[in-house]
Amino acid sequence: MSATFQSAFAAGLFGTTPAPAGLMAWNTPTPERRYGVYRNNVTASLTAALASRFPAAENIVGPDFFRAMARAFIAAHPPSSPVLLAYGDDLPDFVAGFAPARELAYLPDVMRLEIARGRAYHAADISPLDPAALAAIDPARLGALVFTPHPALSVLSSPYPVVTIWAMNAGERPLAPIDVRQSEHALIARPHLAVEVIELSPGGAVFFHRLAAGATLASAAESAMSGHADFDLSDNLAVLLRSGAFAAISQDKTDEDPDHA
């Protein structure tokens, strides 16, 4: 079987083009019909895979709408790998430009939260930071600490109440009226077996974003406080240790305290 025919066969599975020329089947005079069945099965399987990754999003729009949206996505973005674990990572961006979902402006961020939860679930098993390790640090050197993110860590900031919407559609909270103009921020972590979604304050989101990017504790706290006067460092340090969001600590290499050389 030539590479050209294989390419045509594969390309036809994700669109509405006719079956590739030269298609044959040993047990039917109409291989095009068999090809159509196979194409439908492929699309149905990929749609099911997407639904399994985005159950809250499917619950928001309903199975029929989600199925139609998934089919449009599959036609435009066929999988590039036989491993479907990451298939759909670009679905939120697709949905952001999907005209029938225009009124659900929060939907892409709900999907991004679901992606973060999936990544956390499959992240490497690494022990989270032991609170005792932080307690053992000289208080004078705490500001120069750099935190190594746990592989499961993600921080998501949204102009919409993404945590609340996800939780209501994932069965984590009862349905209730919400203000879709309210921004929310989420820390996603898996310190042990269960994935956790923790709502952060705006300043807390800045703090965790900066720490995850490699900023020192002092620099991250300063960034959080500069734009959010109500930022509470003690509360956010408690979240840091309780959530298992980080795996290790080290001293910033620019720290040149001669008493701790």
Rank of each mutant, 00 (worst) to 15 (best):
A8S: 14
L107M: 07
S223Y: 08
A224Q: 04
L200S: 02
R117S: 12
A218V: 00
Y38S: 06
M168P: 01
E58L: 01
A19I: 11
G12E: 03
S158Q: 12
T4M: 07
P92G: 01
D255F: 08
A170Q: 10
D235V: 13
D259W: 11
A218P: 00
S234G: 10
G171V: 07
A186G: 09
S127K: 10
V83W: 06
A76N: 09
L187C: 09
A261Y: 05
R67L: 04
G15C: 09
S219E: 09
A101S: 14
L142M: 08
A215T: 02
S158N: 15
T28A: 14
M1R: 13
P20Q: 01
Y121W: 13
W166N: 13
S127G: 08
A105P: 01
Q182E: 14
M168D: 08
P79T: 10
N27D: 15
F9R: 10
P161W: 05
A19R: 06
R33Q: 14
F147G: 03
I165G: 03
D138S: 15
R53P: 01
A215Y: 01
A212K: 10
A218Q: 09
R117L: 13
I249K: 00
A167T: 01
Y38Q: 13
F231D: 06
M69Q: 05
R141E: 15
A170N: 08
R34I: 02
L50A: 08
P55Q: 15
P108M: 01
V180L: 12
P159Y: 12
P177C: 03
P29C: 11
M111W: 15
P131E: 09
S223A: 11
A221S: 15
E256K: 08
A133D: 13
A25S: 15
A48F: 02
A135L: 15
A135N: 09
E184V: 03
P92K: 02
M69V: 09
P78V: 04
S158L: 15
T30A: 11
H150K: 11
L241S: 08
A140C: 04
P29N: 09
G171W: 02
F94K: 05
I188W: 06
A19W: 07
V83S: 08
D255W: 00
G143M: 02
A194V: 11
P29E: 14
A136P: 03
N59W: 07
A124P: 00
L241I: 00
R173T: 09
Y160K: 06
G62Y: 02
E103G: 11
I74N: 06
T254Q: 07
L145I: 02
R71C: 07
D255Q: 02
A68S: 07
A176N: 13
R102M: 14
H228R: 04
P29A: 08
R112A: 06
A123L: 06
A229H: 11
N40F: 03
M225D: 07
I249Y: 00
E196N: 05
A105K: 04
P159Q: 12
A186V: 10
D138T: 07
E222R: 08
H260T: 04
